[in-house]
Design a protein around this nucleic acid. Structure first.
Lengths: 349, 349
DNA sequence: TTGAAAGCGCTAACAA
DNA sequence: TTGTTAGCGCTTTCAA
């Protein structure tokens, strides 16, 4: 099963390898008869040039590395889909590097992130798109920052929805604070006054941004924002359930809950149902992310759409321009939209 | 930003490139003092050898191509996660090729599949794992079969849950017929006699396999399996909704519905709720796949677990052995398990 | 224990 | 319009 090369084609066509290369890449005029002869042989042997050799020479591989924390979190496939759509047009392919945050401790995850970052560099990717993980940290360690910075000196790096400091890095982000504000505003408009926000971690910037929006909306409407109005504790369905259970133990339960994401919102709904509450009659719930599940749940979840697909497409486009050394804005911000569905309703004294 | 090479290291260490290569790969004894000197320089310059050059020479890249139809279908991320877990141990990285079946016609999808298959070959992947798409077709065109066959002559190919003919291809499959049988049996045990199966397409082998299991269980229990007991029509939530609406228009509606997958089951539930039915009191529903959503829905969906994670891990392991030319079984079959939850209940005359 | 040199498969500059 | 040739960065004989 010897691999066919340009030499084999050249020999049989009685031309030089340069000519074969020329018909392969349409890089210089070739007499029609020669071209046909070569093309025929290429066809006959199903010859496919070795991309490694080509890339080695040209110093571009058409490969982009994607580093993300957990592909089973539905947020990421949505973004990925947008990325793929856009990047395919440009002829890129993806290395998918999942650091599997879900089944290991965080230290391990960051180690894997480092591992993948270096691996991608070795593989000579044209650029790296990073989502989640360290770029979501409010206080990343110096090494984490330094490492990514080093990486970004070698190849373009685009951060998706992250804010890790470092001047040489570009990013596309969603205005999460505005999204959280919208969500809170929506609840307030419905007459809710006692609103609690649940989920997330206060060491993560996405949580901080969302809490900020929540508090801002509350404050602007003259509503109380005591310490008991925000309960941190994670991003999963189970976390949502747990936090809601906690909430339901309080003497006075809120009339509306704003969840850090759709997954916790689902967990919260489950806990509420189990406690015999009706949604939205007894309790309004808002999610965040607007993953497909949100519109599939019963009742359908009101959520803030992060426009994942657009996020992905924008990141891919940014990367493309970066690779071609075109002028690119340091940061592109996407404005989220609230999608009102069936889990929020008017406050009933 | 010139790339550092073994030559730079060699020059500064006053040794030959061969020696640098030796310390890099631990491939031959090197005097400790020389080794240290070289190692130091490698550290100093953060030197990372160019994987392209190495792969070109060694004829192995440590890259595996994954071709799948739609990353936003939650089934695939689950499998992918298993794949990644296993393959990471072996030091492989993935090319993710999403043919985006969801937003384009099927012809276009198969064209993209071909495109990616060839691209992966050019990139010199060590193997290709293919999920969905053409391998799910009952009657693929001759070209589709031929093309994949050609590919499999060049690199190992593992089909995940597919049955495209071709002797040189390995596969790991789930026994879907048995799964469907279990699901149907479960409903029958609950006393249901009028059971309808909805969703899927009869030109796809997964549908055929599941319908077969459904019919088998029905027949074995002496239940009718007239033409009106199976309604084809797709795999999405919307398809499920539509098909259930159709079903509800019938004079006599069934007491239980077996859905081709969890997505259609969710659609079916929505339609049923909208029609004022209670689940499971008025109607029992079973899904298939057991995506995370199944256990998150309200009420929680009874479903047949395809053990996606195990599927992925097994495929990765198979690929690994194939690459190392170890002995590998042509086919590995995974037995599914039903997960009984809250959407199925006893028949109530 | 080390170095010189060939070569992986390709492209592109230069020459013809 | 075509061929010759020099690399791309690495590993691996073979010889010293």
């Amino acid at each position: 099963m010897k691999q066919i090369t340009v030499y084999d084609i050249a020999r049989e066509a009685k031309v030089s390898v340069a000519t074969v290369s020329r018909v392969l890449n349409n890089t210089a005029p070739v007499k029609t008869s020669t071209r046909n002869k070569v093309a025929e042989l290429i066809q006959k042997y199903q010859f496919q040039p070795n991309a490694l050799a080509r890339s080695l020479l040209k110093k571009e591989t058409g490969m982009i590395g994607i580093v993300l924390p957990d592909i089973t979190n539905p947020f990421f496939p949505e973004v990925l889909s947008g990325l793929e759509q856009e990047a395919r047009k440009q002829g890129y392919t993806f290395f998918l590097c999942d650091t599997c945050s879900s089944n290991s401790d965080t230290r391990e995850q960051y180690r894997r992130e480092s591992h993948y970052l270096h691996l991608l560099l070795e593989k000579q990717v044209d650029g790296i798109i990073i989502l989640g993980g360290r770029i979501d940290l409010v206080n990343p360690t110096e090494e984490m920052v330094q490492e990514l910075l080093e990486v970004s000196k070698r190849v373009p790096v685009v951060q998706v929805n992250g804010r890790l400091s470092g001047s040489s890095m570009h990013r596309v982000v969603v205005n999460e604070t505005a999204g959280a504000e919208q969500a809170t505003q929506h609840l307030i408009h419905l007459g809710h006054k006692d609103i609690v926000m649940i989920g997330g971690f206060d060491h993560m910037s996405n949580t901080v941004a969302r809490v900020k929006g929540f508090k801002k909306a509350m404050k602007e409407n003259g509503l109380s924002i005591g310490a008991d109005k925000v309960i941190y504790g994670g991003f999963s369905v189970d976390d949502g359930r747990r936090l809601m259970d906690e909430l339901l133990c309080r003497k006075k339960r809120p009339s509306a809950v704003f969840c850090i994401n759709d997954l916790t919102a689902i967990g919260a709904m489950k806990a509420a149902f189990k406690a015999g509450l009706r949604i939205p009659e007894d309790l309004s719930i808002v999610g965040f992310d607007d993953i497909p599940f949100a519109s599939h749940s019963i009742p359908e979840l009101t959520s803030v759409s992060l426009k994942c697909n657009e996020l992905g497409r924008t990141a891919a486009e940014m990367m493309h321009r970066l690779i071609r050394k075109e002028k690119v804005k340091k940061q592109i911000t996407i404005e989220p939209d609230i999608r009102v569905r069936d889990t929020t309703g008017p406050f009933r004294g």
